[in-house]
């Protein structure tokens, strides 16, 4: 388990060598491995399908399609660094979109207020999840599995199948384009940069690495573990709400089922990108690569005319393989 104590002499030499040139972090990581794999896929398919794959339109489409899950994955990465996850995010996104749509179409509330209403509802839903997990101490999987059903049901109750023909003043944002990329993509990039800064450099978010690594030790070191958990669930709710509202702005419809299955897609991407189910590991940049890798895989499978049944099989196998590889590598180290 532990390494033998080096003799004083060798320990001394190692120390001086290290002091003069401190090695910061391990160079090899899941993020880097996945990035290289992603690059090689791009390379290979650019050669195989120079027309259909290597086009601006195709890449723009890939990004457009991943924006929704990408935004969710940012929140999910913060959660999983802290050692928890949230299955209700897809339903929460649907619910926030539907509430926003209902407020502006049915209740006649001005657009900005309707958006704020949708976000507030999503944040409250997230807070509820966090409260149940941290204070009542129900397991996160069970809590969010339950609230997923609740949020999905509420979305259907309020919006039916969906609320269509949302006002132009609302859809203008989601459908705007800059430099060939749609607004949701820009939004995802902006959120990712902000979240990367927060998770990598602020003291507040640094605490999530500690509670994810060992919640007991974090508690005994004076960290407010329960409070931090409630905050991360609330933040996740807010981010899910944003994702749902932006998506409904883009398609001009608040669909009650837009988020179905999105939670698992987000969790898959985040794990591929280096998060661990037990917490304490992961970066936003890893989450983004995970999301991009998944979207790219789907895209190349469609382009190479692989049937949709096989897409599921291949993506599922890739996930298990990636995590299995990690587990084998870690075992060797200990």
């Amino acid at each position: 388990m532990t390494e033998p104590r080096p003799s004083p002499v060798t320990a001394g030499t190692i120390q001086t060598a290290a002091a003069s040139r401190p090695s910061r972090r391990r160079v090899w990581s899941r993020e880097l491995a996945l990035a290289l794999l992603t690059l090689s896929i791009i390379l290979v398919f650019s050669i195989l399908f120079p027309v259909s794959f290597r086009s601006t339109a195709n890449f723009s489409a890939i990004l457009r399609n991943l924006a929704f899950e990408g935004i969710l994955a940012i929140g999910m990465m913060i959660m999983m660094v802290g050692g928890v996850f949230d299955l209700s995010v897809g339903a929460m996104a649907s619910l926030a979109g539907v509430i926003t749509g209902w407020l502006m179409k049915v209740a006649g509330v001005p657009v900005p207020l309707a958006v704020i209403g949708g976000l507030a509802a999503a944040a409250f839903g997230g807070f509820l999840n966090g409260f149940i997990v941290a204070k009542v101490r129900v397991n996160a999987l069970i809590t969010t599995l339950g609230t997923m059903g609740v949020f999905q049901g509420l979305a259907l109750l309020i919006g039916g199948p969906g609320i269509t023909f949302l006002p132009d003043s609302f859809t203008r944002f989601g459908q705007a384009e800059h430099l060939g990329l749609q607004a949701p993509v820009w939004f995802m990039i902006g959120l990712a940069l902000a979240a990367h800064y927060a998770l990598a450099h602020t003291r507040f978010f640094r605490q999530y690495y500690y509670i994810g690594s060992n919640a007991k030790a974090a508690h005994l070191s004076g960290l407010h573990v329960e409070r931090l958990q409630i905050i991360s669930f609330t933040l996740m709710g807010l981010i899910a709400g944003l994702a749902g509202i932006i998506y409904s702005s883009r398609i001009a419809t608040a669909s009650s089922t837009v988020g179905v299955g999105a939670e698992l897609q987000a969790i898959t991407a985040v794990i591929l990108g280096g998060a661990s189910l037990t917490g304490g590991k992961g970066t936003i940049w890893g989450a983004m690569i995970g999301v991009f890798f998944m979207a790219l895989m789907k895209n190349v499978l469609i382009i190479s005319r692989v049937s949709s049944e096989w897409q599921g099989i291949i993506l599922g196998a890739v996930l298990v393989l990636a995590v299995a590889l990690d587990s084998v590598m870690n075992r060797k180290k200990l």
Partner: peptide, 21 residues
Amino acid sequence: KDSGLFLDRSIAQNVVAARLN
């Protein structure tokens, strides 16, 4: 191991854990 250390974190991160401020 159970409640003292953040085993997968670095030595430095373990040392500063109670003094993040």
